[in-house]
C-alpha cells in the first residue's frame, strides 16, 4: 500500500513536471533554444495567484486567470525583448541571456516580495479520498493536479495536431525556412509557443504551490531544472515525450524519497538525467539529428 501511495503522489508531482516540461520542449522544438527562465515564470505565476487571492482576498479562480494572463504576457514580452534579437546568435549567447532573464526575475521577485518564505493557500477545494479502509489517502491537490494535467495534455495534443496554429508550430519545428516559404509567419508562431508554454507554467506554479505550499523567489528554480531533466528524459522537442518523461521522473523522485533517502532524491534525479544523456542522448522519444557540415 505504501508503494501505491508513493506511485500516486509521484504521478501527481510528475504531472506538474510534465506541464513545465511541455513549455521547455515546445520552445526547444520551435525556437531551438533552452529557455532557462521558464522555471522562474512558474514562480511569477505562483506569486501572482498569491497576491490576488491572499493579499487582495479575491476568489482563487480570479487569481488563476490573472496569473495565466500575466505569465502569458510576460513570456511573450521576454521573447520579443530578449530572445528575438538573438535569433542568429550562438547558442551560448542565447543561453546566457536566458540565465540573465532567470536571474532578473528571481531578483525582481526578491525585491518586491522579500526573501522570506510565504505560505501559499491551496486553491484546491476537494476533500481527500480514502481507499482500502483508509490505508491509502489521496489528497484533493493530488486529484486536482492529475485531472487538470490530463485535460491540459489532451487539449494541447488536439491543438497541435488539429488546428492551424498548431500545425504551423509543427512545421516550424520541422524546418523553419521551409515553413516560412510556405507562408507561415515564424515570428507569430514562436510567440504563440512562448504564450502557451508560459500559460502552462502559470498553471503548474499554482498546482505546485498548492501541493507544496512554500513560496519564495527561488521556488521555481529547482522544479524548473527538474522539469528540464524530464524534457530531456522524454526526448527534447517531443510533446508526448515531455509528458511521459515528467510523470516517470515524478515517480522516480518519490520512490527514491520513500525507499532510499529524502535528502538524496535530488542527486538521484540528476543522476537519471546524466545516465539518460549518456545512454540515449536523444531521450525516450526524441529524433536523432545528423550533423551537417
Amino acid at each position: 500500500m505504501e508503494f501505491l501511495s508513493y506511485i500516486v503522489s509521484g504521478i501527481s508531482l510528475g504531472s506538474i513536471y510534465a506541464l513545465i516540461a511541455l513549455g521547455y520542449t515546445m520552445v526547444y522544438g520551435i525556437a531551438k533554444m533552452l529557455n532557462f527562465a521558464h522555471g522562474d515564470i512558474i514562480m511569477v505565476g505562483a506569486f501572482t495567484v498569491f497576491t490576488i487571492s491572499t493579499t487582495f482576498g479575491l476568489p482563487p479562480i480570479v487569481g488563476i486567470i490573472g496569473s495565466v494572463i500575466i505569465c502569458t504576457v510576460l513570456g511573450v514580452t521576454i521573447e520579443k525583448v530578449a530572445y528575438k534579437p538573438l535569433r542568429q546568435a550562438s547558442s551560448l549567447a542565447v543561453l546566457i541571456t536566458a540565465i540573465g532573464i532567470s536571474y532578473f526575475l528571481q531578483n525582481a521577485a526578491l525585491l518586491i516580495f522579500g526573501s522570506g518564505t510565504k505560505s501559499f493557500t491551496s486553491v484546491v477545494n476537494i476533500p481527500m479520498i480514502k481507499l482500502f479502509d483508509g490505508q491509502l489517502t489521496i489528497s484533493g491537490e493530488t486529484i486536482a493536479t492529475i485531472v487538470v494535467s490530463v485535460i491540459i495534455m489532451i487539449a494541447l495534443t488536439l491543438f497541435i495536431n488539429h488546428t492551424k496554429p498548431g500545425k504551423a508550430m509543427l512545421a516550424v519545428s520541422e524546418d523553419r525556412d521551409a515553413a516560412q516559404l510556405m507562408g507561415i509567419n515564424v515570428n507569430t508562431t514562436i510567440s504563440v509557443t512562448f504564450a502557451i508554454g508560459s500559460a502552462l507554467a502559470a498553471v503548474a506554479g499554482t498546482l505546485l504551490c498548492s501541493a507544496y505550499p512554500a513560496l519564495s523567489p527561488t521556488t521555481g528554480a529547482m522544479p524548473g531544472i527538474k522539469a528540464f531533466t524530464a524534457a530531456v528524459f522524454g526526448g527534447i522537442g517531443s510533446v508526448p515525450g515531455a509528458m511521459i518523461g515528467g510523470i516517470l521522473l515524478g515517480i522516480i523522485e518519490n520512490l527514491s524519497k520513500g525507499y532510499i533517502s529524502t535528502q538524496f532524491s535530488d542527486a538521484i534525479v540528476f543522476a537519471v538525467l546524466i545516465i539518460v544523456l549518456l545512454v540515449k542522448p536523444t531521450g525516450l522519444m526524441g529524433k536523432k539529428i545528423n550533423e551537417k557540415v
Partner: peptide
C-alpha cells in the same frame, strides 16, 4: 558526448549532485 545546452545542463546537474 554532449555539446551546447545539454552540456550546460549536465555540468549543472553534476554541481548540484556534488553539493547534495
Amino acid at each position: 558526448r554532449l555539446k551546447g545546452d545539454y552540456l550546460a545542463i549536465v555540468t549543472l546537474a553534476f554541481g548540484e549532485i556534488i553539493k547534495n
